[in-house]
Amino acid sequence: MSASESLSISDRANIAIDFIRKLLPEPLRNPKVAVICGSGLQHLAHALSDTPRVEIKFADIPYFPQTTVEGHTGKLVFGYFGDVPSVCMVGRVHFYEGVTFDQSTFPVRLFSVIGIETLVVTNASGGLNPDFKVGDLMVLNDHINIPGLAGWHPLKGPNDSSFGPRFQPLSDAYDHELRIKLFAAANKLKLKRSIHEGVYVFVSGPTYETRAESRMLRIMGADCVGMSTVPEIIVARHSNLRVLAISLVTNAVVTDPTPKASAGNVDLAKGIANHEEVIEAARLAGDDLRLLVLETIKSL
């Protein structure tokens, strides 16, 4: 075991925070809100104040995980959303990149130790609900944790009681008041983009789901599917952070049964998901999501 591996998560978080705070002016050293920007959603950081504003690369921060995915820049951006000192995490690290959950959720632990009170999590997701269209937003009000139910859980292992309890309840994971504020902000902004509430299902990835898997997930009650967010939510609640989570529907998941070979020639590629499609849909929705998040945070 290396010296770093022998340190507790809270010890590593404190070392990382000491490094970060030395780079921040006094007003930004105690941010209250953190925003995690999903695939292609780096636009959210553009809503932060220009002055003061500090950007720090993931690679420069002790113990901070490194992202390898296109559309995830890999930096923390500190500034103000309105009058609220905040930090944007531009890009995230996913379980499928080969890291442990302790590593992929380390930023949330760091946010907890630095004094964050509210975590806003965004992601790009596939729409399972047939009423959802590409470009719609879904505010999470519940989730299904497929890896967690199968034994790959972010709280697996010894519990650090300095963060939270051994058995963390999740029936209140998605803050009701924050969801009310988001819909009030959407009404104030008169956004034309559809906003739903629903259930997000977390799968490990990196492959997109088969048709049969997609039908199963829909039958289970999921409205959107993705490869992130839920581990961060669980660790945030374990760290007593309030949580607001928003999915951007970037593709409509194919749930039709696979055509039989006896049917003759068919186009199996029709509707197939791809990462370029995800990034483009996120780009188009970026301005609306940026305005919505900014207005919601300003109301805190």
Rank of each mutant, 00 (worst) to 15 (best):
D288S: 12
F132A: 06
H46Y: 05
V278K: 13
I272Q: 15
L248Q: 11
S2W: 03
F111R: 10
I246C: 12
A212N: 11
W152F: 08
G126V: 02
H94N: 04
D102H: 08
T68R: 14
D267A: 04
T250V: 04
S194L: 01
D50K: 15
T296A: 04
V108L: 13
C88R: 11
S86R: 07
G135V: 03
D18I: 00
V84C: 07
S171M: 06
A285F: 04
A222K: 09
R211G: 03
R242P: 01
S6W: 01
A186S: 15
S299A: 14
P257W: 01
R53E: 08
P165D: 07
R21E: 12
S8C: 01
V201S: 14
I233R: 06
A185C: 06
K192W: 00
K188P: 01
H43I: 01
S10Q: 15
S161R: 12
E55W: 00
D267H: 05
T210E: 10
N129D: 15
R211M: 01
P31D: 08
F101E: 15
T210M: 04
L149V: 05
A47S: 15
T73P: 00
A186F: 03
T118D: 09
I116S: 12
G71S: 08
Q103E: 15
R215T: 02
G135I: 03
V225L: 08
A281R: 11
I56R: 13
P257M: 02
F202I: 04
A273L: 05
S86W: 03
T255K: 14
G127D: 10
Q42I: 00
L289C: 05
L294V: 00
S2N: 14
A269R: 15
I144L: 15
V225R: 07
V278Q: 12
M227N: 12
V253K: 11
L241M: 13
D131T: 09
F132P: 04
S161P: 00
A222L: 04
P27V: 02
L244P: 08
G82R: 09
A150G: 01
N274T: 02
V113K: 15
S194Q: 14
G40R: 13
L76H: 11
P158K: 14
D267N: 15
A281L: 05
S262P: 01
V253G: 11
L149M: 15
P154Y: 07
I233D: 13
L137C: 03
G126W: 07
S49R: 10
G71H: 09
S299R: 14
F132V: 02
L23D: 12
N265G: 00
V225K: 08
H275M: 04
